[in-house]
Design a protein around this nucleic acid. Structure first.
Length: 432
RNA sequence: GCGGCUAUGGUGUAACGGUUAACGCUCCGGUUUGUGGUACCGGCAAUUCGGGUUCGAUUCCCGAUAGCCGCCCCA
């Protein structure tokens, strides 16, 4: 009932409530994430959602703006600037750097943090989400790049998705574009503008893109256009083909192909972060309704340098639950965890509830999930509810059962019944 | 920060400017005082807020608020 002055039942703008049915889905997503990461030998870590604001400010001018306008930042009672973490990478870099002398590299870590950003909402973007973060630290060759992309691909496979049918992996390298910029001797401001434009390439048609590129780059347009429109490595401009980055990327793509993980070269993959230094990749949803990147990552070899000491090589990705849900829903791949108890004990009257609790507890002691229907409803309603909730067994508990200490167990899936003592029924359930 | 669309029970929808705002789902009760989801009957429950036009507004207009979608941006 909507009334003036009453509190709203809606959650805070841009964040979600997880009702049991939502939580069942969330647990499913997380379980696939965890299982897959752990199958690759990744270890779980976590940290507080609160970080000192400097952690994000120190990443450069672009991020200054992001921190002040797109994060939840406030001053605590001690006068400290605090930010609700908008991403996990600075946190993990901080943690890695903090133990740089103790950790035995390479290190494989994963986490599923809750992240916050203050921004305008649209499809696939809320102000809060959960994101799987997987990172490998301490390996500066292509083997780690291959592993991290292979892991991303394996996660999709474990959700029942098929590479090339439901999604597509696009890859590029920051080094390629840098190599081209260097040979063209482009000034910094033009590099930035071209990079920005390239990042938005897939949002505009080819003519618009060419036109805008020409406006920015002038007579360097030809080379840049050849680069950004290349659909294969071989189609890149000659100076780039001779670079080390080219050979590296070729190796990564070839190795992944051998492992039956198709990746598509796409020079317009940029990613917004300044800290990427090598490969960058994004996974695209092939459903027309979700024409955008679902997740992405790349190599960032200098991030821990912010904390002093030699830089530690890192490669990783972030994978958000909101886009994942949209993806799985769109492709009819979404399932949920069934959390129904195995056994529902149904007292025939409320005065038997306490005795029924004792019986339920005896089943629980034998590792059987049991619940008591504490409502005042009639037995036929209680059975219907137990059945709707997908409990496997129902046990009606009345005066007779209490006196005789024998019970009738009804299998709600098959319709069959079996009678016996507590011990007999425990054995029956555990064997079924 | 900019733009578009929308706003009716818990939920999803309906109602030419005109009686009591309709229907599906959910929920509750009954048919059936201790054994299955069905069926049938009954019940609870709504026009976001504030102005304006009008004899009369859920309907038209303005504003506020909220939501959705897109742009910008995207760690």
């Amino acid at each position: 009932m909507k009334q003036k002055g009453k509190l709203s039942t809606a959650p805070y703008k841009g964040v979600r409530d997880f009702y049991p049915e939502d939580m069942a889905v969330q647990r499913y997503l997380f379980s696939i994430w965890r299982q897959t990461a752990e199958r690759f030998g990744f270890e779980a870590y976590d940290a507080s959602i609160l970080e000192p604001s400097e952690l994000y400010k120190s990443k450069g001018t672009v991020n200054e703006e992001i921190v002040s306008e797109q994060t939840y930042t406030f001053t605590d009672r001690g006068g400290r600037e605090v930010t609700l973490r908008p991403e996990m990478t600075p946190t993990v870099a901080r943690m890695i750097a903090g133990r740089r002398r103790e950790l035995r590299f390479p290190v494989r870590w994963y986490s599923i943090p809750n992240l916050f950003r203050y921004e305008r909402m649209q499809r696939g973007r809320l102000r809060e989400h959960w994101q799987l973060n997987c990172d490998i630290f301490g390996v500066d060759d292509t083997s780690a790049d291959v592993e991290i992309i292979l892991l991303a691909n394996e996660i999709f496979k474990n959700f029942g998705a098929e590479n090339g049918v439901h999604y597509q992996i696009h890859i590029s390298s920051r080094k390629l574009l840098e190599a081209l910029y260097d040979t063209l001797q482009l000034p910094e401001d033009i590099r930035v503008a071209v990079t920005r434009l390239a990042d938005r390439k897939h949002k505009m048609d080819a003519d618009t893109f060419s036109q805008k590129l020409h406006e920015i780059a002038g007579n360097a347009t030809e080379n840049l256009s050849q680069f950004l429109n290349a659909t294969t490595l071989k189609a890149l401009p000659q100076p780039v083909i001779n670079s080390d980055a080219y050979a590296e990327l070729q190796t990564i793509i070839d190795t992944l192909e051998e492992l039956r993980c198709a990746v598509t070269f796409d020079p317009s993959i940029i990613r917004g972060f300044d800290y990427y230094t090598g490969i960058v990749f994004e996974v695209f949803d092939l459903h027309p309704q979700n024409n955008r990147a679902m997740m992405g990552g790349g190599r960032y070899d200098n991030l821990t340098a912010l904390f002093g000491g030699d830089p530690i090589a890192g490669v990783g990705f972030g994978f958000g639950d909101v886009t994942l849900r949209d993806f799985l829903e769109s492709h009819n791949l979404l399932t949920a965890y069934d959390t129904a108890p195995t056994l529902a004990i149904l007292p025939t009257a409320t005065y038997l509830n306490l005795e029924a609790q004792k019986l339920a507890h005896a089943f629980r002691s034998a590792d059987i999930a049991a619940t008591v229907d504490l409502s005042g409803k009639k037995i036929r309603k209680k059975i219907a509810h137990a059945s709707e909730r997908l409990c496997t067994f129902a046990l009606v508990f009345g005066e007779d059962e209490q006196r005789e200490k024998t019970y009738t167990l009804k299998n709600l899936n098959e319709g069959s019944s079996i009678s016996g003592t507590l011990e007999e029924l425990i054995m029956y359930i555990n064997n079924s």
